[in-house]
Protein backbone atom coordinates (compact mmCIF):
# COMPACT_ATOMS: atom_id res chain seq x y z
CA UNK A 1 0.00 0.00 0.00
CA UNK A 2 2.66 2.49 1.08
CA UNK A 3 6.17 2.29 -0.27
CA UNK A 4 8.78 4.76 0.90
CA UNK A 5 12.38 4.51 -0.21
CA UNK A 6 15.23 6.75 0.86
CA UNK A 7 12.99 9.67 1.65
CA UNK A 8 14.81 12.92 2.33
CA UNK A 9 13.31 16.30 3.10
CA UNK A 10 15.29 19.37 3.99
CA UNK A 11 14.16 22.93 4.55
CA UNK A 12 15.95 26.21 4.10
CA UNK A 13 15.56 28.34 7.17
CA UNK A 14 16.68 31.86 7.60
CA UNK A 15 17.65 33.28 10.92
CA UNK A 16 17.83 37.00 11.47
CA UNK A 17 16.74 39.63 8.97
CA UNK A 18 15.53 39.06 5.45
CA UNK A 19 18.72 40.36 3.89
CA UNK A 20 21.50 39.83 6.37
CA UNK A 21 20.17 36.58 7.82
CA UNK A 22 22.03 33.30 7.75
CA UNK A 23 20.63 30.59 5.52
CA UNK A 24 20.66 27.17 7.06
CA UNK A 25 19.54 23.82 5.74
CA UNK A 26 17.63 21.68 8.20
CA UNK A 27 17.21 18.01 7.40
CA UNK A 28 13.76 17.13 8.68
CA UNK A 29 13.75 13.58 7.32
CA UNK A 30 16.89 11.60 6.47
CA UNK A 31 16.87 8.44 4.43
CA UNK A 32 13.63 6.98 5.68
CA UNK A 33 12.41 3.76 4.03
CA UNK A 34 9.48 1.54 4.92
CA UNK A 35 6.56 -0.35 3.46
CA UNK A 36 3.08 -0.72 4.80
CA UNK A 37 0.85 -3.51 3.57
CA UNK A 38 -2.83 -3.11 2.84
CA UNK A 39 -4.96 -3.42 5.95
CA UNK A 40 -2.11 -2.80 8.37
CA UNK A 41 -2.33 -0.44 11.30
CA UNK A 42 1.00 1.23 11.99
CA UNK A 43 1.81 3.41 14.95
CA UNK A 44 4.22 6.16 14.01
CA UNK A 45 5.99 7.49 17.08
CA UNK A 46 8.54 10.12 17.81
CA UNK A 47 9.07 13.20 19.92
CA UNK A 48 7.89 16.59 18.65
CA UNK A 49 10.04 17.84 15.81
CA UNK A 50 11.39 14.39 15.04
CA UNK A 51 10.17 14.35 11.46
CA UNK A 52 6.81 12.68 12.06
CA UNK A 53 4.64 15.39 10.64
CA UNK A 54 7.01 16.01 7.73
CA UNK A 55 6.63 12.34 6.75
CA UNK A 56 2.84 12.58 7.05
CA UNK A 57 2.81 15.76 4.97
CA UNK A 58 4.78 14.01 2.26
CA UNK A 59 2.50 10.98 2.38
CA UNK A 60 -0.62 13.15 2.11
CA UNK A 61 0.84 15.05 -0.82
CA UNK A 62 1.13 18.36 1.02
CA UNK A 63 4.91 18.40 0.78
CA UNK A 64 7.20 17.48 -2.07
CA UNK A 65 10.28 15.64 -0.76
CA UNK A 66 13.83 16.69 -1.57
CA UNK A 67 14.61 13.20 -2.82
CA UNK A 68 13.45 9.63 -2.52
CA UNK A 69 10.64 7.54 -3.92
CA UNK A 70 7.15 7.45 -2.46
CA UNK A 71 4.27 5.48 -3.87
CA UNK A 72 0.95 4.98 -2.22
CA UNK A 73 -1.46 2.56 -3.87
CA UNK A 74 0.49 2.95 -7.09
CA UNK A 75 0.31 6.76 -7.07
CA UNK A 76 2.88 9.40 -6.26
CA UNK A 77 1.19 11.61 -3.65
CA UNK A 78 2.35 15.01 -4.89
CA UNK A 79 1.58 14.32 -8.54
CA UNK A 80 -2.02 14.41 -9.63
CA UNK A 81 -3.16 15.67 -6.25
CA UNK A 82 -6.92 15.44 -6.88
CA UNK A 83 -6.88 11.81 -7.94
CA UNK A 84 -4.69 10.87 -5.01
CA UNK A 85 -6.42 12.65 -2.15
CA UNK A 86 -9.78 11.22 -3.20
CA UNK A 87 -8.56 7.91 -1.77
CA UNK A 88 -7.37 9.34 1.53
CA UNK A 89 -9.02 10.08 4.78
CA UNK A 90 -7.30 12.22 7.36
CA UNK A 91 -8.13 13.29 10.88
CA UNK A 92 -6.01 15.84 12.68
CA UNK A 93 -6.68 15.98 16.37
CA UNK A 94 -5.84 19.66 16.61
CA UNK A 95 -8.21 20.92 13.96
CA UNK A 96 -11.49 20.05 12.35
CA UNK A 97 -12.44 19.72 8.72
CA UNK A 98 -16.07 20.45 9.57
CA UNK A 99 -17.68 23.79 8.84
CA UNK A 100 -17.51 25.58 12.16
CA UNK A 101 -20.96 27.18 12.28
CA UNK A 102 -22.91 24.51 10.42
CA UNK A 103 -24.71 21.48 11.85
CA UNK A 104 -22.62 18.32 11.54
CA UNK A 105 -25.16 16.84 9.14
CA UNK A 106 -24.73 19.77 6.71
CA UNK A 107 -20.95 19.43 6.80
CA UNK A 108 -21.19 15.74 5.97
CA UNK A 109 -23.64 16.56 3.19
CA UNK A 110 -21.20 19.06 1.72
CA UNK A 111 -18.37 16.54 1.89
CA UNK A 112 -20.55 14.10 -0.03
CA UNK A 113 -20.51 16.60 -2.91
CA UNK A 114 -16.83 17.38 -2.47
CA UNK A 115 -15.89 13.69 -2.76
CA UNK A 116 -18.73 12.84 -5.12
CA UNK A 117 -19.93 9.92 -3.03
CA UNK A 118 -22.80 8.06 -4.73
CA UNK A 119 -26.04 8.79 -2.83
CA UNK A 120 -26.69 5.16 -1.84
CA UNK A 121 -23.19 4.66 -0.58
CA UNK A 122 -23.38 7.91 1.37
CA UNK A 123 -26.62 6.86 3.03
CA UNK A 124 -25.22 3.44 3.97
CA UNK A 125 -22.02 4.87 5.39
CA UNK A 126 -23.77 7.62 7.29
CA UNK A 127 -26.12 5.08 8.82
CA UNK A 128 -23.28 2.76 9.79
CA UNK A 129 -21.13 5.53 11.28
CA UNK A 130 -24.04 7.09 13.09
CA UNK A 131 -24.62 3.78 14.83
CA UNK A 132 -20.96 3.00 15.52
CA UNK A 133 -19.98 6.46 16.71
CA UNK A 134 -23.35 7.37 18.20
CA UNK A 135 -23.52 10.55 16.12
CA UNK A 136 -27.31 10.74 16.35
CA UNK A 137 -27.60 13.08 19.33
CA UNK A 138 -25.45 15.81 17.76
CA UNK A 139 -25.95 15.56 14.00
CA UNK A 140 -27.96 18.76 14.20
CA UNK A 141 -25.42 20.62 16.36
CA UNK A 142 -22.94 23.08 14.84
CA UNK A 143 -19.32 21.96 15.07
CA UNK A 144 -18.40 24.88 17.29
CA UNK A 145 -20.83 23.66 19.98
CA UNK A 146 -19.53 20.08 20.09
CA UNK A 147 -17.43 18.68 22.89
CA UNK A 148 -13.95 17.62 21.87
CA UNK A 149 -14.92 13.96 21.89
CA UNK A 150 -18.04 14.56 19.79
CA UNK A 151 -16.07 16.67 17.36
CA UNK A 152 -13.48 13.95 16.96
CA UNK A 153 -16.20 11.37 16.29
CA UNK A 154 -17.79 13.63 13.70
CA UNK A 155 -14.40 14.24 12.08
CA UNK A 156 -13.76 10.50 11.92
CA UNK A 157 -17.06 9.96 10.15
CA UNK A 158 -16.25 12.85 7.80
CA UNK A 159 -12.89 11.30 6.93
CA UNK A 160 -14.37 7.93 6.07
CA UNK A 161 -17.58 8.77 4.21
CA UNK A 162 -15.91 8.37 0.82
CA UNK A 163 -14.52 4.91 1.60
CA UNK A 164 -10.84 5.79 1.56
CA UNK A 165 -8.25 3.01 1.33
CA UNK A 166 -5.89 4.82 3.63
CA UNK A 167 -6.56 6.73 6.82
CA UNK A 168 -4.15 9.13 8.50
CA UNK A 169 -4.83 9.70 12.17
CA UNK A 170 -2.82 12.43 13.83
CA UNK A 171 -3.23 12.46 17.61
CA UNK A 172 -6.85 11.29 17.42
CA UNK A 173 -7.28 10.98 21.17
CA UNK A 174 -5.42 14.05 22.38
CA UNK A 175 -7.27 15.86 25.15
CA UNK A 176 -10.05 13.26 25.43
CA UNK A 177 -11.21 11.45 28.55
CA UNK A 178 -10.74 7.71 29.01
CA UNK A 179 -14.20 6.72 27.77
CA UNK A 180 -14.00 8.85 24.65
CA UNK A 181 -10.52 7.54 23.85
CA UNK A 182 -11.69 3.97 24.11
CA UNK A 183 -14.68 4.61 21.88
CA UNK A 184 -12.46 6.05 19.18
CA UNK A 185 -10.01 3.15 19.40
CA UNK A 186 -12.85 0.65 19.05
CA UNK A 187 -14.14 2.46 16.00
CA UNK A 188 -10.75 2.56 14.32
CA UNK A 189 -10.18 -1.12 15.06
CA UNK A 190 -13.60 -1.87 13.60
CA UNK A 191 -13.08 0.13 10.43
CA UNK A 192 -9.69 -1.48 9.95
CA UNK A 193 -11.08 -4.98 10.37
CA UNK A 194 -14.34 -4.59 8.43
CA UNK A 195 -13.27 -2.27 5.63
CA UNK A 196 -9.62 -3.19 5.30
CA UNK A 197 -8.65 0.43 5.69
CA UNK A 198 -4.92 0.88 6.14
CA UNK A 199 -4.22 3.16 9.09
CA UNK A 200 -1.19 5.26 9.86
CA UNK A 201 -1.45 6.55 13.39
CA UNK A 202 0.70 9.19 15.04
CA UNK A 203 0.11 9.64 18.72
CA UNK A 204 1.71 10.36 22.04
CA UNK A 205 -0.69 8.00 23.78
CA UNK A 206 0.89 4.56 23.81
CA UNK A 207 -2.36 2.92 24.79
CA UNK A 208 -3.62 3.87 21.33
CA UNK A 209 -0.69 2.02 19.86
CA UNK A 210 -0.99 -1.00 22.12
CA UNK A 211 -4.69 -1.35 21.38
CA UNK A 212 -4.54 -0.72 17.63
CA UNK A 213 -1.18 -1.24 16.08
CA UNK A 214 0.61 -4.51 15.59
CA UNK A 215 3.55 -2.56 14.30
CA UNK A 216 5.35 0.59 15.36
CA UNK A 217 7.86 2.83 13.69
CA UNK A 218 9.92 5.20 15.79
CA UNK A 219 11.52 8.26 14.27
CA UNK A 220 13.85 10.75 15.89
CA UNK A 221 16.10 13.47 14.49
CA UNK A 222 14.70 12.66 11.06
CA UNK A 223 15.86 9.05 11.01
CA UNK A 224 13.86 5.88 11.52
CA UNK A 225 15.10 4.22 14.72
CA UNK A 226 12.87 1.19 14.92
CA UNK A 227 10.40 -0.61 12.73
CA UNK A 228 8.81 -3.74 14.12
CA UNK A 229 6.15 -4.97 16.52
CA UNK A 230 5.62 -3.73 20.01
CA UNK A 231 6.41 -6.95 21.97
CA UNK A 232 9.73 -7.28 20.14
CA UNK A 233 10.59 -3.71 20.98
CA UNK A 234 9.92 -4.53 24.57
CA UNK A 235 11.91 -7.74 24.54
CA UNK A 236 14.90 -6.12 22.91
CA UNK A 237 15.04 -2.78 24.57
CA UNK A 238 12.68 -2.91 27.51
CA UNK A 239 14.04 -2.98 30.99
CA UNK A 240 13.79 -6.34 32.76
CA UNK A 241 10.69 -7.50 34.65
CA UNK A 242 10.80 -7.09 38.37
CA UNK A 243 9.87 -9.47 41.15
CA UNK A 244 8.80 -7.81 44.39
CA UNK A 245 8.95 -10.19 47.34
CA UNK A 246 7.54 -9.47 50.80
CA UNK A 247 9.27 -11.82 53.22
CA UNK A 248 7.72 -12.73 56.58
CA UNK A 249 10.66 -10.98 58.25
CA UNK A 250 13.54 -8.91 56.93
CA UNK A 251 15.93 -11.53 55.59
CA UNK A 252 19.39 -11.74 57.06
CA UNK A 253 20.85 -11.66 53.57
CA UNK A 254 18.52 -10.50 50.77
CA UNK A 255 20.81 -11.87 48.06
CA UNK A 256 19.51 -14.97 46.31
CA UNK A 257 21.84 -17.00 44.10
CA UNK A 258 20.61 -16.74 40.46
CA UNK A 259 18.57 -13.52 40.97
CA UNK A 260 19.71 -9.99 40.43
CA UNK A 261 19.07 -7.82 43.48
CA UNK A 262 17.59 -4.39 42.74
CA UNK A 263 16.69 -3.04 46.14
CA UNK A 264 16.02 -4.13 49.69
CA UNK A 265 13.90 -2.29 52.21
CA UNK A 266 13.08 -4.17 55.39
CA UNK A 267 11.04 -7.24 54.48
CA UNK A 268 10.44 -5.99 50.88
CA UNK A 269 13.09 -7.03 48.39
CA UNK A 270 13.05 -6.43 44.64
CA UNK A 271 14.82 -8.60 42.07
CA UNK A 272 15.21 -8.22 38.32
CA UNK A 273 14.79 -11.08 35.86
CA UNK A 274 14.00 -11.82 32.25
CA UNK A 275 11.73 -14.45 30.77
CA UNK A 276 9.18 -16.49 32.73
CA UNK A 277 8.46 -15.75 36.40
CA UNK A 278 8.09 -19.30 37.72
CA UNK A 279 11.76 -20.01 38.43
CA UNK A 280 12.55 -16.67 40.12
CA UNK A 281 9.49 -17.14 42.34
CA UNK A 282 10.57 -20.64 43.27
CA UNK A 283 14.07 -19.43 44.08
CA UNK A 284 12.77 -16.63 46.28
CA UNK A 285 10.30 -18.77 48.20
CA UNK A 286 13.05 -21.32 48.82
CA UNK A 287 15.26 -18.57 50.24
CA UNK A 288 13.07 -17.58 53.19
CA UNK A 289 9.40 -17.64 54.28
CA UNK A 290 7.41 -15.39 51.93
CA UNK A 291 4.14 -13.55 52.62
CA UNK A 292 3.44 -12.09 49.15
CA UNK A 293 4.93 -11.90 45.63
CA UNK A 294 4.21 -9.49 42.79
CA UNK A 295 5.61 -9.27 39.27
CA UNK A 296 6.05 -5.74 37.93
CA UNK A 297 5.97 -5.38 34.14
CA UNK A 298 8.32 -2.89 32.52
CA UNK A 299 6.78 0.31 31.19
CA UNK A 300 6.65 0.70 27.39
CA UNK A 301 6.55 4.43 27.68
CA UNK A 302 9.75 4.35 29.67
CA UNK A 303 11.32 2.08 27.07
CA UNK A 304 10.48 4.43 24.24
CA UNK A 305 11.63 7.42 26.21
CA UNK A 306 14.90 5.63 26.76
CA UNK A 307 15.17 4.99 23.03
CA UNK A 308 14.75 8.70 22.31
CA UNK A 309 17.13 9.74 25.02
CA UNK A 310 19.84 7.20 24.89
CA UNK A 311 19.74 6.28 21.25
CA UNK A 312 19.59 2.62 22.20
CA UNK A 313 19.86 1.61 18.60
CA UNK A 314 21.71 2.82 15.58
CA UNK A 315 19.20 2.78 12.76
CA UNK A 316 16.54 0.43 11.57
CA UNK A 317 16.96 -3.16 12.58
Amino acid sequence: MIEVEHLHKSFQTRSGGLLRGQRRTVEAVRDVSFRVARGEVVGYLGPNGAGKSTTIKVLTGLLVPTSGRVEVGGLVPWRDRRRYVGRLGAVFGQRTTLWWDLPVRDSLDLLRDVYRVPPDRFRENLKAFTALLDLGPFLGTPARALSLGQRMRADLAAALLHDPDLLFLDEPTVGLDVVARERIRQFVAHVNAEREVTVLLTTHDLTDVERLARRVMIIDHGALLYDGNLPDLQARFGSARELVVDFEAPPADPRVPGLKLVSSEGPRVTYAFTGAAARPIALATAHAPVRDVTVREPDIEATIRRIYEGGLLGTVS
Partner: peptide
Protein backbone atom coordinates in the same frame (compact mmCIF):
# COMPACT_ATOMS: atom_id res chain seq x y z
CA UNK B 1 -1.83 29.56 9.54
CA UNK B 2 -4.88 27.69 10.86
CA UNK B 3 -4.21 24.70 8.63
CA UNK B 4 -7.48 24.95 6.72
CA UNK B 5 -5.42 25.56 3.60
CA UNK B 6 -3.97 22.05 3.94
CA UNK B 7 -7.51 20.81 4.40
CA UNK B 8 -8.31 22.31 0.98
CA UNK B 9 -5.34 20.45 -0.45
CA UNK B 10 -6.60 17.19 1.01
CA UNK B 11 -9.86 17.43 -0.91
CA UNK B 12 -10.21 16.20 -4.47
CA UNK B 13 -11.42 19.54 -5.80
CA UNK B 14 -9.40 22.19 -7.68
Amino acid sequence: RSGSFSTFLLRPVP
